[in-house]
């Protein structure tokens, strides 16, 4: 039975990806909204922001990528919630399949669909003048950080999707996540903020992640930021996964 894990997960991924591609709402929110935000910040507010880079789009892009992922995973929770409500979740669980594929199907869909939005946003950023001297290694490192970020947040989304009692509740958990980049180094350097806010911005996960990606794009040494970022990401991933499994076991007991 468990020998079908990969093929089962693949079927689940195919199914769930159709849910993504057949819902314009998902595509617009996850891709167009961050692009609109990028246009707004670069062409309207950017002129007044002194972030210390030649081009504000270079400064802004890493944070926009994180915002797009944070809004994308709301749909992961929403789709999982929908499966529980419609009863197809139970149909799958009464079938001779690898049960883990039911959740992994959603998590894999989250990874694939968010990486597609990230790729589109990077292309738009390039059109807007985003330039990087990053080589293949640095690009791979950025991709790895973004994948880890998506994976960790996707398991958070699984918790929300399993535990929610309404569709709004399933996606509401992502609002603070979408908001976190605003109180970080994603839009402006943290030094410009009042002391308590600066302290918060310096010590929350988004700042170290944004700084690492920005350094990688600029071919600068990543310093301690990368280790702080990885510690946050792996920590969130482990806690979210364990907690998701606890909620899942309660659900199917």
């Amino acid at each position: 039975m468990s020998s079908h894990v990969l093929s089962d997960a693949n079927v689940m991924l195919g199914r769930s990806m159709r849910h993504v591609t057949r819902s314009m709402d998902t595509i617009i929110t996850v891709t167009i909204t961050p692009i609109a935000m990028m246009l707004l910040f670069v062409y309207v507010l950017g002129g007044a922001i002194n972030a210390g880079t030649d081009d504000y789009v270079d400064y802004l892009t890493p944070g926009i990528l994180l915002i797009s992922i944070a809004s994308g995973i709301a749909y992961t929770a929403y789709r999982l919630y929908g499966d529980l409500q419609s009863g197809i979740f139970e149909r799958f669980h009464s079938m001779p399949i690898a049960r883990s594929s039911v959740l992994w199907g959603h998590v894999l869909t989250s990874l694939v669909s968010n990486m597609i939005s990230v790729a589109i946003i990077v292309l738009v950023a390039l059109l807007m003048g985003f330039r990087t001297s990053a080589g293949v290694g640095a690009w791979l490192a950025v991709a790895g950080i973004l994948l880890l970020f998506t994976l960790a947040l996707s398991w958070l989304a699984v918790i929300a999707g399993l535990a929610a009692s309404s569709p709004d509740g399933a996606s509401a958990f992502s609002y603070p996540l979408i908001f976190l980049p605003f109180i970080s180094s994603a839009f402006v350097p943290t030094e410009t903020m009042p002391a308590p806010v600066e302290w918060f911005a310096q010590n929350q996960p988004v700042t170290s992640i944004v700084n690492s990606i920005r350094s990688l794009f600029a071919e600068q040494p990543v310093g301690d930021d990368i280790w702080v970022a990885l510690a946050w990401l792996v920590g969130i991933l482990i806690v979210a996964y364990v907690f998701a499994m606890v909620v899942y076991r309660k659900k199917i007991a």
Partner: peptide, 22 residues
């Protein structure tokens, strides 16, 4: 309480179950 997938077509629903049942 068993269900069909509303976003998929009827054929896609059947193919999905057939693949899951090997």
């Amino acid at each position: 309480f068993a269900a069909v997938d509303e976003i998929l077509t009827g054929r896609e629903n059947l193919v999905m179950i057939a693949r899951l049942r090997q």
